[in-house]
Design a protein around this nucleic acid. Structure first.
Lengths: 190, 190, 190, 190
DNA sequence: CATGAATGAGACTTCATTCAT
DNA sequence: CATGAATGAAGTCTCATTCAT
């Protein structure tokens, strides 16, 4: 299945993300997708063999894109603390700006929809973060703990805060973002 | 709901949790519940008016139970650091021991199933944690940041680690638990 | 099936009539009957083998009772016109007083519930009316038309009026009843 | 309702009428409709949102059609007696020719299925008959009685006769139809 | 005998997928 | 290729009937 119009593929994926983020995977219906995209059912099935493939493809594309853009703008030869700060801010900014996409990803991760290939994309996202943390440990700046532990603290905290913020329960200002990054730093600091 | 046999109610709820935790809300089917509980469809519908009510009631019961047991065993007159430690460990222990229930809760929170009443139970769970953090601030032991920020760091980090651990990607030992609590402490410490 | 308590049988039949008259046969549920009679499901099934038998038995009992009471008070040796009047009035009075029962009967007649035996009760109800009409013809007071035709005019007209009246669309006074009887008389009069 | 193929809509309605007329509303099942029309369940639900809507729409369409055709062919400037005769014959002919439809209508009227809109269609059917009766009264040809009373006699009688005839209990010939109309005339004549 | 919770076949309805236009 | 009406398997839910108490 290698069809022509890449715009349509993107439109379908985008609408998929929007619908799943809004109503959850359980409520995601192909007919709603057809309406939102103004494409016939058959057209969608011309690009994706099934609902499952659509979800998986959308997930993988998103993961790849995210992984790429979260690590953007980090000077590979820079100072560790600055790299760390940049990464945190990238992540926070990205998650806020592309919140629907992150929600979509989380819905998928908690579901039975993802196939083995898709789940691999998940792991890859942590690679650069792990490399950075390893570097930090070498420089004696970061606690000598498993990366899983360190990463969880950084990401888990940020996620919850941003979700609260986007749910309207909390206002996220530049100042609170600073505080958030500082907390993560304090947590992992040697 | 016309309750007669409380054992059956509990059995139904328990099976609901198990099935949702295993396959997600999207894949949760009443017929599977009927099979797992060895109860007729009608029996289940005798206790819960609809699938939606079943999900909501199960959610509320769990939330109430969890809120209660996570704050158990904390000496109200104790030293702050010890209280904090106890709370963290309670949470970690509880989430590990009742992982399916936590998964169920998170599935629900990300869905469209929960009604207004159920969502209220959600907020209540943070009350005691907030009180503890306020006390810590008064004693100048905790950073003067919004509780949302502080709580997110503690809970978000723990959640991710435990999920990784139960997914088999990470081994959670007494030692790593100590490290996890320490990280949270470092994060919020003044 | 020859159970003990005739009061219960009557109570069940009465409630059946009420429920069917109110909501129609399509909506008639055994559980509603159980509630209205304050009898357990099993008790009802102790007296009637099935829903179908209950409907049929109730129908037959009603038909028998009605046939008997509609022809009551008519002097067999009286003047024809007086007999006719009395019969019309009996019918009108009875249908008004026992409207739910008549509705029940009509619901049954239009359904697939009635068995062969029950349908026989239906025909029997016309016997005395037919005899009366035959007498009228002999006396040259009544048109020499098939009884079906004559009876339809008398009964059909009365039914519609009473239904309208009980639906609240029309007020049935002693005067309008007189007019109704007069119309029937004019219709069949030689 | 998202209509595309009007033939299908009509086929569905026609089959609905047939099934309800045959077995009653209580026994009317969507699956039987699917079989009889050779349409998939989903197709039917594409045209009608629910069983209830299907019943109501079918009822309203029939009522509208009937009201129109029963009053057809009557010369508005004709002689009253001829108008009356024509109307009676129209009604009898129509009810015989479209007996299933009339049965369907009566099943609906005695049920809980009809919504408020549908019930309005019911009342409208009597308008022209009422106008005719008013004219007859003005010309001193018709008894000065409420139209409800007059109409009931005409319609009620005809209904019963036709039902008996279609049930096979009575043969309705041109001659008996004449007699029937004559009886109605005698009944309402001044 | 009376009870009413339990049962499960079968009803109504939805929605992923196909295919004639 | 695009379309969206049509499909029918499968899901949620009901209710006549039974049976352990």
């Amino acid at each position: 299945m290698k069809p022509r119009d890449p715009n349509k593929i993107e439109a379908i994926k985008k609408a998929t993300v929007q619908l799943v983020a809004q109503h959850g995977l359980a409520a995601f219906q192909m007919s709603a997708l057809s309406q939102l995209t103004s494409l016939g059912m058959g057209t969608i099935y011309g690009y994706f063999q099934s609902k499952e493939e659509l979800i998986n493809e959308t997930f993988k594309a998103l993961k790849a894109k995210h992984t790429h853009s979260i690590y953007k703008g980090i000077d590979p030869n820079g100072i560790f603390r600055e790299q760390f700060d940049q990464l945190c801010r990238n992540y926070i900014t990205h998650r806020r700006r592309h919140h629907a996409e992150h929600l979509f990803i989380e819905h998928c991760q908690r579901s039975t929809f993802l196939d083995a290939t898709a789940r691999q994309y998940d792991a890859a996202a942590y690679q650069v973060l792990n490399q950075l943390l390893d570097k930090g440990k070498k420089e004696q700046l970061v606690k000598h703990l498993p990366n899983t532990l360190l990463a969880a603290n950084i990401i888990g905290g940020a996620n919850l805060v941003i979700d609260q913020s986007l749910a309207g329960h909390f206002r996220l200002t530049p100042r609170t973002i600073n505080q958030l990054v500082q907390m993560s730093w304090d947590a992992i600091q040697h």
